[in-house]
């Protein structure tokens, strides 16, 4: 049995798509998305997207990595195995810098990749818009707005009417399993 997963509307050009994005944002939609063959300057503002928190995630993880790096080496060479190596003090921060730096980068890079995937909702193997044949145009000359049915403001009839009122064409109900 097929469920209603969302609605899809096509727009004629980037300008009408941007205009529609502003209307959707003002109408209180949260999980709507705009699809275009190329990036449109100013679309983030029009859709009301905020700055990604990825920088802070990377920063926090990188600092954790650095602390871990210093900590491991401090424990190994001062607490667990205090050996004198080439006449240097047990706590020689100079010797720790490279591994500290490496872990700083490593955890930062992992945080960047995994955090980016998580924030984007990836990996995701399907999306309701792929049930539409007309949507194939998105990589060529189509400009679309999709609204998913889990949006709090989603109501199949009202949203359909709203899409029509902001200039949407070829409005489709996305149905799938």
């Amino acid at each position: 049995m097929n469920k209603t997963l969302g609605l899809l509307a096509e727009f004629e050009n980037p300008a009408t798509l941007m205009n529609a994005a502003e209307k959707f944002r003002e109408a209180g939609y949260k999980t709507f998305d705009c699809h275009s063959p190329f990036p449109i300057h100013g679309m983030d503002e029009a859709m009301g997207l905020k700055r990604s928190p990825i920088g802070y995630i990377v920063g926090a993880m990188a600092v954790t990595g650095a602390a871990l790096g210093i900590g491991i080496q401090y424990y190994a060479s001062v607490v667990a195995y205090p050996h004198i190596i080439s006449g240097k003090p047990f706590f020689s921060w100079q010797a720790y810098v490279i591994i500290t730096f490496a872990l700083f980068i490593l955890l930062g890079a992992f945080a960047a990749v995994i955090g980016m995937l998580k924030i984007n909702g990836l990996p995701r193997f399907y999306h309701p818009v792929f049930y539409s044949d007309n949507f194939k145009k998105f990589s060529d000359d189509g400009f679309f707005v999709s609204v998913e049915s889990d949006d709090p403001a989603f109501d199949i009839d009202k949203t359909k009417a709203f899409m029509d009122s902001v200039g949407g064409k070829n409005i489709e109900v996305l149905e799938g399993e």
């Binding site: 006449g87 100079q94 010797a95 810098v97």
Partner: peptide
């Protein structure tokens, strides 16, 4: 520069 010289001593 510093770390290499520090290590080599």
């Amino acid at each position: 520069q510093y770390f290499l010289i520090w290590y080599g001593n």
